[in-house]
């Protein structure tokens, strides 16, 4: 059932990828937990997300994978009754430390959501939004950055003549790539993707997956997906979460061919989840 795709063939072929411990871990969890009130959604998870690689987080729904992802850029801050335990480190700093600047954190860690959520503004203004927040209105460079971001998200050719159109007039797949461009425009180092293709059709999904392959090596990408084939296709490393616990973590090729844990194998072969 596991297709040998470009991504995992490459992952297997490149020794540097497998030897992820040797590189500086940009994002790392150290016995990290997240609680919704009394309910512990993420339990003592310890793992490193290596730089410039694609890490997939998989697991059945409700296993805490989205919660873990959203903890990285503190999008869970708004949840009433939410609190954390352990440490979550980005660039050597505790993300939940007292003096951490959330604005800078989120700027350096971009995010793409489940459903494409462009603002009801023009395409240009969508991409420019984040830049304007940080730089103020600097029209000349903005133009360049918007173009570069759209190029990088593979959307430029489709929208270059209609940058002033409402973003909501794009198709779902285009909207999602626009959201990726919007995230890239603020020049992040890490890109969090929360099931970015779950609302898209197969063709649009394929484009996003290709895009992820292109972005690999420039950005540290962490992607949550419930689609195991997708994880196999796009990721270098895979983490399997089950009921908040990290069950297994390792190179994708190895996880999908020779899982070390019984539960990983059960999940991958469809016994549950």
């Amino acid at each position: 059932m596991i297709q040998p795709t470009l991504a995992n063939i490459r992952a297997a072929a490149e020794p540097a990828t497998a030897d992820y411990g040797g590189r500086q871990a940009h994002v790392a969890c150290d016995r990290f937990s997240f609680f919704y009130g009394d309910n512990q959604a993420v339990r003592n998870v310890t793992l490193d997300f290596p730089s410039f690689q694609v890490t997939a987080i998989i697991g059945p729904s409700g296993c805490g994978k989205s919660t873990l992802l959203r903890s990285i850029n503190r999008m869970n801050d708004l949840i009433p009754g939410g609190r954390t335990g352990g440490r979550l480190v980005f660039d050597g700093q505790d993300v939940y430390g007292p003096r951490l600047d959330v604005v800078t954190l989120r700027r350096r860690i971009g995010m793409v959501f489940q459903k494409p959520n462009p603002f009801p503004k023009s395409i240009f203004n969508n991409v420019a939004y984040g830049r304007r927040l940080h730089d103020g209105p600097d029209k000349g460079r903005l133009q360049e950055i918007v173009e570069a971001s759209l190029q990088r998200a593979g959307l430029w050719d489709e929208v270059k003549d209609r940058l002033d159109d409402n973003a909501l007039s794009l198709s779902g797949g285009q909207q999602q790539r626009l959201c990726i461009a919007r995230a890239l425009a603020v020049d992040p180092e890490v890109l969090l993707m929360d099931e970015p293709t779950s609302a898209l059709d197969p063709r649009a999904t394929a484009r996003i997956e290709d895009l992820i392959a292109e972005l690999r090596g420039r950005y540290t990408i962490i992607i949550v997906t419930h689609n195991m084939q997708q994880a196999a296709r796009v990721s270098d490393l895979t983490a399997f979460l089950y009921e908040g616990d990290l069950i297994e973590y390792g190179a994708t090729a190895q996880m999908f061919t020779q899982p070390r844990q019984k539960r990983t194998e059960d999940y991958m072969t469809g016994r549950f989840g």
């Binding site: 850029n73 971009g110 995010m111």
Partner: peptide, 8 residues
């Protein structure tokens, strides 16, 4: 969420 994730 989108705005917040962009650092607003």
């Amino acid at each position: 969420e989108a705005a917040l994730s962009l650092g607003a």
